[in-house]
């Protein structure tokens, strides 16, 4: 009988039992509802072992790639080690390596980790400082850069972590990283699929990671990146992105400014309106939305109505931290 390992205990899977049945029998309180693979409330994550395909049916590619599965439909043939879906799996020590100004408010922070962090560009990690301060930041780097991780940090008024990073943090200062978390990332396997990426503010960070990941992996379908801002001075990485646009025939960078004309090569208007004018029919597209939560929600709905499948829409709303 296969053994299911959960929270350091191993249980023999009974005849005909699902992983959910087995853990429930042993007194673990795993949330569940439909028990037929529809509601997804019993989702767990496998950290080792082989998952039967039926246990991942209907999940997003991003979930599948990370070993998430539905415990009610999981009848494995071999041993499995599983954790709760929301458990951050890695804890990595890191140090500030360097800081660079990207614009008036946004800082590029590069951290170096002691050991490699396994991640998909576009996921986020939690920065933890001594004293219990924790904030989430998206990964703008790609794994090819080794132990160097890149983040874009906007200065938040009264923000403890962003204030520290902007004003005090110096090379060598330690931080603890927890994660990675999140499902907003590129999954290979469909290199012709058109990609629609839209972000505001430092929503560009995950998109910059996802974009470079897709290009590195030889994505061939068209990729459109829309970065929207109120003023031209709120945009950043414009040179790097225009450079990538010039180098890759399938990549188009659209910078838009809402409240002023901006430079010649920029577009003026609301980013979502401009983006949907450029790509009005999103049937078959993969969509990545990052940044301002209200905008992300609105565009999630608009891109769905424009034909994108729910499974192909990855929305990463940057929620403000509670209490500074």
């Amino acid at each position: 009988m296969p053994a299911i390992t959960y929270e350091d205990n191993s249980y023999a899977l009974g005849e005909g039992e699902s992983v959910l049945d087995c853990l429930a029998r042993e007194g673990h309180d795993i949330p569940s509802s439909c028990r037929s693979g529809v509601c997804h409330s019993c989702m767990l994550r496998a950290t080792s072992g082989e998952l039967p395909p039926a246990a991942q049916k209907g999940l997003k590619d991003a979930h599948r790639a990370q070993g998430y599965f539905l415990s009610c439909c999981c009848h494995p043939e071999g041993d499995l080690t599983v954790t709760r879906a929301d458990d951050a799996t890695q804890k990595v020590a890191a140090r500030v390596l360097r800081k660079e100004t990207l614009n008036d408010r946004v800082l590029r922070v590069v951290l170096e980790t002691d050991k490699p962090l396994e991640y998909f560009p576009g996921q986020f990690v939690n920065f933890a400082r001594p004293g219990g301060l924790v904030r989430s930041f998206s990964l703008a780097s790609v794994p090819a850069l080794g132990n160097e991780l890149e983040f874009h940090v906007a200065l938040v008024l009264g923000g403890s972590m962003s204030g520290w990073l902007h004003h005090e943090a110096a090379p060598g200062d330690p931080l603890e990283l927890l994660g990675p978390l999140g499902n907003c990332f590129y999954v290979s396997g469909n290199p012709e699929q058109p990609l629609f990426m839209l972000g505001t503010g430092t929503g560009l960070a995950p998109l910059y990671g996802i974009l470079r990941d897709a290009l590195n992996q030889g994505h061939r379908g068209p990729i459109h990146l829309f970065h929207g801002a109120l003023l031209a001075s709120d945009l950043y990485l414009t040179e790097s992105l225009r450079d990538l646009d010039g180098k890759h025939e399938n990549f188009t960078y659209h910078a838009s400014v809402r409240d002023e004309p901006g430079e010649d090569w920029m577009e003026q208007g609301a980013v979502d309106t401009l983006a949907l004018k450029t790509a009005p029919d999103l049937k078959g597209w993969k969509v990545f939305l990052c940044g301002n939560p209200d905008l992300v929600k609105q565009v999630q709905r608009k891109t769905f109505m424009a034909g994108a499948n729910m499974k192909d829409i990855h929305a990463d709303a940057f929620l403000p931290a509670g209490g500074g």
Binding site: C34, S36, V38, C39, H40, G58, K297, Q300, R301, F304, M310, I313, A315
Partner: peptide
Amino acid sequence: METQAQKQKAFLTMAFGG
């Protein structure tokens, strides 16, 4: 929307007699 899509799926499964 994701939660709602999941609920729609459960509803359709039921309506289809599943």
